[in-house]
């Protein structure tokens, strides 16, 4: 769907992006991860030509974007900014209507689609006539998302979309984001420096440093098969919590014993170890029944869980 081939970009004397190539397939969510200054935002902005690459080619749907009219290209790509970038002189409705108007939609279509997308983002009708400065940060970011999604573009670019929010709002919006049906069909490239956010949302992660790609892979690949020291160290401080969050009970199903006990709280095996631990913490008996995929059930306690996790970890490293 999106294909970057040997893309380079320099600003003055510093090379911001060096020889970057990757592909994002349709419906995939690729997250560019790295510290500030690693070239991830530059890479993202080259996809909608906010920044023009010095060399290399970028194509969307097989068409080289350099050959397309820039404005037309951008109108077909949803774009969410770190600082949201809502127009302060436009109401929420007008902000959302910007791209549809540029595309020449008629009034009724704009209105019905705006209402639809706002409702999906939990912004009921009364918000549409408000100005951005009358909204909370989380609401503003939802409007920003609605603005990017209103024309239902196939590609969505997001530059630190939750960066301007406080931690609590950030988590709740992220949750909504994950649950949003509109997003599941889209090809998304997103930039973040937040490791947990990346692992939480990504199909694949592209780890960057000093303008080059260090490693591209699924979260699990990054966790268990880092290509070099940098990739290993990058995740080191968060490793354990990432693993707890990444590994589902399904992953360790075979390693779990069945302790046979009734009347416990239950959890689905698609949940992560982290979720299971949280549930166990809140239980009196310290026991939990896991509902497996083929209607199997296993009852576990804290000990059983950590032992299974250790086994799994060892297996992964030695694979």
């Amino acid at each position: 769907m999106i294909k970057l081939n040997a893309v380079n970009k320099s600003f003055c004397d510093t090379q911001a992006v060096k020889d970057v190539s990757f592909e994002v397939s349709e419906g995939e969510n690729l997250i560019l991860l790295g510290t500030s200054g690693c070239g991830k935002t530059t890479t993202l902005k080259m996809i909608n030509r906010l920044i023009v690459p010095d060399s290399g080619s970028i194509s969307i749907d097989g068409k080289d974007i350099a050959n397309e009219q820039t404005e037309k290209l951008r109108r077909g790509i949803g774009y969410v900014l770190q600082n949201i970038g809502l127009f302060p002189h436009y109401t929420v409705a007008e902000n959302i209507a910007v791209v549809p108007k540029l595309l020449g939609w008629n009034k009724e279509k704009i209105k019905s689609r705006s209402t639809e997308i706002l409702e999906k983002l939990h912004l009921p009708g009364k918000y549409s006539s408000m100005f951005p400065n009358e909204l909370s940060g989380g609401q503003q970011q939802r409007v920003g998302l609605a603005r990017a999604l209103v024309t239902d573009p196939a590609v969505l670019l997001m530059d630190e979309p939750f960066g301007a929010l406080d931690n609590i709002t950030r988590l709740s919006i992220r949750k909504e984001f994950k649950a949003l049906e509109e997003l599941k069909r889209k090809t998304i490239v997103m930039v973040t420096h937040d490791i947990h956010e990346a692992f939480d949302l990504a199909d694949r992660i592209c780890l960057m440093d000093q303008g080059t790609i260090i490693q591209i892979g699924t979260p699990k690949e990054l966790l268990y098969h880092p290509v070099n020291e940098f990739a290993r160290n990058f995740l080191a401080s968060e490793r354990l919590s990432l693993e707890f969050k990444m590994i589902s009970l399904n992953d360790i199903w075979d390693l779990l014993p069945n302790l046979k006990s009734d009347g416990n709280a239950s959890i689905s095996s698609t949940e992560s170890i982290w979720d299971a631990m949280e549930k166990l913490q809140s239980q009196q008996e310290n026991k939990l029944t896991v509902n497996g995929q083929s209607n199997e059930q296993k009852t576990i306690d804290f000990n059983a869980l950590t032992t299974a996790f250790n086994h799994y970890q060892n297996n992964q490293y030695h694979e």
């Binding site: 909608n48 906010l50 820039t70 404005e71 037309k72 290209l73 951008r74 109108r75 077909g76 774009y79 900014l81 770190q82 600082n83 949201i84 970038g85 809502l86 127009f87 302060p88 910007v98 791209v99 540029l102 603005r147 670019l157």
Partner: peptide, 14 residues
Amino acid sequence: EPSVREAAKGMGMS
């Protein structure tokens, strides 16, 4: 605000 200008550009305004 630069982000507002960037948003306008990113949405495909001339």
